[in-house]
Design a protein around this nucleic acid. Structure first.
Lengths: 135, 135
DNA sequence: GATGTAATTGCAAATGGTTGCAATTAATAT
DNA sequence: ATATTAATTGCAACCATTTGCAATTACATC
């Protein structure tokens, strides 16, 4: 199921700007910042607008089509959710980002539901610490 | 051990601005934003400066005296670390923040070290989801 | 295909937070 | 008590992101 189809189905308009943001997001396997998406867009369409990029990313996030991670440098990064579900281990020393399969957090998810009756959304999380190289 | 003593010991200066930020941070049991601290400061000392507030909070964080949480509204909040170690469960529907004792995350911490050789710093974390009332 | 309308965009201004740099000052040595 | 000096502050400019609003446009209906 493509992102644009889901947009249409949910009653959102499929505009050229939105198509270009979706394309840019899917053009990378890893995460990408709004600024980087904006620059890719401008190559094709010089009138591209940064606030529309942010608004589209926000919408994709709401629809569960994109995930946002914050690795602590003040710049939000995004990736298409279909590009594998995983978490991020961010090293506080060297900045390396290690991908962690989502299964690693299933026990925590269950414990929070059992002990706190809290339905945690642990679909994308950044965990900070020190990687094996830097220890 | 007071914050100001630790500052001195580590070779940092104890300035009036820093004392006031520390006081403001300790004056609340819960978390507080930089803006709120700044407003408290201005009541006492009208020449207070917001960038010094941010820099002091950053320093306290580095020294492990304060913790920062981001509950997803784009505003960073801080609390004195001695005010109990805990995590935050943030409800995506009603915005309620539930405190979670740190022991709840010990199994995850151990699993990450064992499986990924990653020394996670899970001292303060915000976990998003749906609280029991909103489910 | 033309028309109506609500969703979306583009702009400019605002927000929360950070930074470079010259001026000031807390702590140290005298 | 004074002088020295490196740490800290205050300012203004900057950055990433958000928002209000008027202009535009994708889609639905005829």
């Amino acid at each position: 199921m493509s992102c644009t189809k889901i947009l249409l189905e949910k009653g959102y308009r499929v505009t050229p700007q939105r198509i270009m943001v979706v394309d840019a997001l899917h053009s990378v396997e890893t995460h990408i910042s709004a600024e980087e998406i904006f620059n890719k867009l401008k190559e094709k369409y010089p009138y591209a607008n940064i606030s529309t990029v942010y608004r589209t990313l926000e919408l994709l996030k709401e629809l569960g089509l994109a995930a946002q991670i914050d690795i602590g440098d003040g710049i939000a990064r995004y990736h298409a959710k279909e590009h594998s579900k995983h978490h991020h281990l961010v090293c506080n020393k060297c900045g390396t980002i290690i991908d962690l399969p989502e299964t690693e957090l299933v026990p925590l998810e269950k414990a929070l539901l059992r002990n706190c009756r809290f339905k945690a959304d642990l679909s994308h999380l950044a965990i900070f610490g020190i990687c094996s190289n830097c220890q």
